[in-house]
């Protein structure tokens, strides 16, 4: 474990917590893409499938973190699609998730480290995570604005994988560790946030709201 991965995981936890708090406190999921949250839930379940297969006692923080990610993302989907369904902005959350899932699944079958079920699921989860934020960014571009709290969520969510890139550079240099698939997907994922990062740094930090040119 290095400082970059530690802060990356903390940033990821913060993002999940910020979103849950936003929905729970405002009792509304306006401005939140349910599809992106569904995709994240799928990512966690397919990536941490080993938790279900050979359940080992929660002997380390990693197992606990995996369970937190899975349960928090499923609970977030429950809030969006059931509890606060009336506030779900289905009209604007209109990006076809199939256009993200099918290519990720196909690519996972073509480009992977080992052609076995667990590895294919892990690879699918990595590819899907890289594009899972697209419905959320698409929704913001459709509505033309993002609530400040949602911007903080997106900043934490984008920072997590950006910090992982620093972690991979660190591990390449000090541990000769290379996980090419995770690195390439992580770079693509972070690039998708660049536009938002620019808006966040120039606007939200100054206390303004993000309003996209309609």
């Amino acid at each position: 474990m290095n400082i970059f991965r530690l802060f990356g995981d903390l940033s990821h936890l913060a993002a999940i917590a910020i979103l849950l708090l936003k929905i729970w406190k405002t009792r509304s999921c306006a401005g939140v893409s349910g599809k992106t949250q569904l995709l994240f839930a799928v990512c966690f379940i397919t990536r941490y499938i080993d938790l279900f297969l050979h359940f080992v006692s929660l002997y380390n923080t990693e197992k606990v973190m995996k369970l937190i990610y899975i349960s928090a993302s499923v609970f977030t989907c429950y809030l969006i699609f059931f509890k606060f369904k009336a506030t779900y902005d289905g009209n604007h959350d209109s990006m076809r998730a199939e256009f993200l899932i099918v290519p990720a699944a196909g690519l996972a079958c073509l480009i992977n480290t080992k052609f076995d079920a667990i590895e294919i699921l892990w690879t699918f989860s990595i590819y899907l995570e890289a594009v899972a934020i697209l419905p959320q960014l698409f929704l913001i571009s459709k509505t033309g604005e993002a609530e400040t709290i949602t911007s903080h969520y997106l900043f934490a969510q984008g920072s997590y994988r950006a910090l992982y890139i620093l972690n991979w550079i660190y591990r390449y240099h000090y541990e000769s560790h290379v996980d090419t698939i995770a690195i390439v997907a992580g770079v693509v994922q972070t690039i998708l946030y660049c536009d938002f990062f620019y808006l966040y740094i120039t606007k939200v930090v100054k206390g303004q709201k993000i309003v996209l040119p309609a």
Binding site: D9, W122, H177
Partner: peptide
Amino acid sequence: KRILTHHDEL
């Protein structure tokens, strides 16, 4: 460089 098969990151 060592390519990982098991994945030790979240």
